[in-house]
Simulated assay, not measured.
Amino acid sequence: MDDPRLDKWLWSVRVFKTRPEATAACRAGKVFIGELEAKPGRDIHVGETVTVRVGVVTRTLKVVGLPKSRVGAKLVPDFMQDLTPPAEYERAKQATLEHMLARDRGQGRPTKKNRREMGRLFGFD
């Protein structure tokens, strides 16, 4: 079987929702194979380590298999092994939380009502 292109592999193992997104990420320098920046048309081989920056998370993936087309979510572990440290996912959760709590510029300090709502959200009351 011919080795697939990198962008096609990233799409088929559900790292990106669409193949053009995977191609754009490769061109933007967000995808590395080993220590080298990878182009979307590069062939990928079993055993290689791929590092992908998706949003605020830097995922580290090991190529275990080469699917012929996009696979279902339950079959993804047959084709890749996720080596991303748990701290990276915690950092993403923290960034999401900070985004939720961010106030628009010029709103000033939270009101008493806002503080009570935040307290209820985090279980301080």
Rank of each mutant, 00 (worst) to 15 (best):
N114C: 06
S12I: 00
V13W: 04
L75M: 10
R105A: 13
K39M: 04
A73M: 06
M118P: 00
R105P: 05
M1K: 10
V57F: 00
T58M: 11
R27K: 15
V46C: 03
E37K: 14
K62V: 04
R19M: 03
R42K: 15
P110R: 09
V63W: 03
T84F: 02
L97I: 15
T49H: 08
V46K: 15
I33H: 04
R70F: 02
T96G: 05
G72I: 06
D2A: 13
E117T: 07
H45L: 09
K30D: 09
K30R: 14
R42L: 15
D125H: 12
R53A: 11
V63T: 01
W9N: 01
D104H: 14
G108Q: 04
G72Q: 05
R105N: 08
R103L: 09
F124A: 11
I33P: 04
R5M: 07
V31L: 12
F124G: 00
Y89G: 02
K113W: 10
E88L: 02
L36G: 00
R103W: 07
A95T: 04
E90R: 15
T96E: 10
T84D: 03
V57T: 13
K68R: 13
N114A: 14
T23C: 00
A87H: 05
D43G: 08
F122C: 05
G72A: 13
P40G: 08
K112R: 13
V63N: 01
M118K: 09
M100Y: 04
W11H: 14
D104I: 09
H45G: 06
L121K: 12
A28W: 10
E90S: 11
E98Y: 08
M80N: 00
K113L: 13
A25N: 10
Y89F: 14
V64C: 04
S12N: 15
G29Y: 02
V71L: 03
D125N: 14
G65E: 03
A22H: 05
R120Q: 11
L75C: 01
L61W: 03
L61I: 14
